[in-house]
Design a protein around this nucleic acid. Structure first.
Length: 192
DNA sequence: AGCGGGATTTTCT
DNA sequence: GAAAATCCCGCTT
């Protein structure tokens, strides 16, 4: 029994760049959205900015599950953000998916509908925008990304010269860590 | 183009 | 009671 997500069984900062270029396949009723991940951030258990820095709570329990699960949390009173859990059970690490770009016209159209008419990069150039565009909420918290209706399809790793590594965005602690990764020149990144 | 504030609710102190 | 891994709108240059 092979596990095509075995590459997720590592630390968040080493997996985060590997997720760039991978494809999210979201199925809603009879429609399928395909989007390429273009921006990620790593969160580790040793990292003061991570939800897993403190002991496990009901909210954060999925982050301590085995790699390959989806961790969805609710924040700022109105937004969801999606993370891919990495590492072995009990470790407490995940990669935040901050931006993605549609792979075909049909996907583009559905994303635009879910975003209430927004078009272009404004559909998915941020973690909460992406969740709204993919119709992801807490009902998918703990979902296994090997299965429908949301699959992660691995892709060959990008070359180092295609990846930009910088500081994370929107956090107050552990600001010095360079744990944000994005595909250079992608128009869909949340901020340059 | 860039800044400032409001929205809105879960979670933990 | 305050902060939160954010976004959007309106105002000012």
């Amino acid at each position: 029994m092979s596990d095509n997500l075995a590459f997720l069984n590592s630390s968040a900062d080493s997996v985060a760049p590997l997720l760039l270029g991978c494809i999210l396949e979201r199925q809603i009723d009879d429609k399928v959205i395909r989007a390429k991940i273009v921006e990620t951030e790593a969160y580790e258990s040793t990292d003061a900015a991570s939800h897993s820095f403190k002991p496990k709570t009901e909210r954060t329990s999925v982050m301590f599950d085995r790699y390959g699960q989806l961790y969805v949390y609710f924040t700022y009173g109105m937004h969801y953000c999606m993370n891919i859990v990495v590492g072995p059970a009990g470790h407490g690490a995940a990669v935040l998916i901050r931006a993605a770009e549609p792979l075909d016209q049909a996907s583009y159209d559905i994303l635009s509908q879910n975003r209430h008419g927004q078009t272009g990069v404004n559909m998915t150039n941020g973690p909460a925008k992406l969740c709204q565009a993919l119709n992801i909420n807490k009902t998918l918290n703990g979902h296994d990304l090997r299965e429908a209706p949301l699959k992660l399809l691995p892709q060959p790793a990008l070359g180092p010269n295609e990846i930009q590594q910088t500081n994370r965005i929107g956090i107050s602690r552990a600001r010095s860590l360079k744990w944000r990764f994005y595909i250079k020149h992608s128009p869909y990144i949340s901020k340059s």
